[in-house]
């Protein structure tokens, strides 16, 4: 009797590689090998993974059309099998795959639209946290407020794109009238988060992505504003701070000790 490990290794190899012969000992009721019976498992694995990618990337599915999407997802899934039984996490490699997938090289914005969909899914399943009431910051003296570090909601994701990826995503996800999009119109930065019940995706004003990224890196408001100002001279700290407090993506604020500045 072959060890179970050997039986399963051979079975798994034949699932991964359709060119391999079907595993020894896998038989029909008459004891004969039957390619089509084993093919049910190959098809189940492939179609369940394609379905999972399709559920996670509905805008890409609509942009590519069903047939092209499924072929693309089939190639992706064959080279990136899940590594966890928690399928909610599957498909994280799909945007990077799209970026280098030669047959779709003519659609350079696809990968960033996929990054927004991935950010949406991650935000959907992210931990709960209550937004900070803006009034809680009212008592902080103005001269100390600039030294504050803000903790952002664990669902916050930022997607930067040289393409109008957020507009493309929105037009292909919501029940909105399809309008022509000028790919040369410039890039968009998207903030994706779930501060309350539902996921929100919105465009960030110029400098916003750098500012939020700096806050997530643990920098103070001053440091984060400086970072944004370096590439975006019109950046206005008050406007941005008001904006992120209103959207509910800040969950805590704390004063950084002055002597730790510059770390």
């Amino acid at each position: 009797m072959r060890p179970l490990a050997e039986v399963q290794s051979e079975f798994a190899a034949a699932l991964r590689d359709r060119q391999l012969p079907i595993p020894r000992g896998c038989v029909a009721p008459d004891g004969s090998p039957d390619e089509k019976r084993f093919a049910v498992y190959r098809n189940n694995v492939a179609s369940s993974l394609i379905d999972c990618v399709a559920e996670s990337y509905p805008a890409i599915r609509r942009l590519l059309g069903e047939e092209c999407f499924r072929e693309t997802a089939r190639v992706y899934a064959a080279q990136d099998l899940p590594r966890s039984p928690v399928m909610l996490e599957y498909g994280g490699g799909f945007p990077a795959f799209l970026e280098q997938f030669e047959p779709l090289a003519g659609l350079p914005y696809l990968a960033d639209v996929a990054r927004i969909e991935r950010a949406w899914l991650e935000a959907y399943h992210a931990p709960e946290a209550a937004p900070l009431d803006p009034a809680a910051l009212a008592g902080v003296p103005a001269d100390r407020a600039v030294d504050m570090c803000l903790t952002l909601h664990p669902s916050v994701r930022i997607v930067r794109s040289p393409f109008p990826a957020l507009s493309i995503w929105h037009m292909n996800i919501a029940d909105v009238e399809v309008q022509p999009i000028d790919l040369e119109a410039g890039g968009e930065d998207a903030l994706v988060a779930r501060p309350e019940a539902e996921v929100q995706a919105r465009a960030l004003p110029a400098g916003g992505a750098l500012f939020l990224t700096a806050l997530m890196d643990g920098e103070t408001l001053t440091q984060a504003a400086e970072r944004a100002l370096r590439s975006c001279p019109e950046f206005n700290l008050t406007d941005h701070l008001t904006g992120i407090l209103e959207t509910g993506v800040v969950i805590a604020g704390r004063l950084k000790r002055r002597r730790s500045r510059g770390h």
């Binding site: 009797m1 060890p3 179970l4 399963q8 798994a12 498992y41 899940p82 590594r83 039984p85």
Partner: peptide
């Protein structure tokens, strides 16, 4: 079974009905 070699196949795969499988 559905996992092997660090990969998850997302399908319910069959086992041989032997004493070794039973024990495992």
């Amino acid at each position: 079974w559905s996992s092997h070699g660090g990969q998850f196949f997302n399908d319910l795969l069959p086992v041989p009905y032997t004493l070794k499988t039973l024990q495992r």
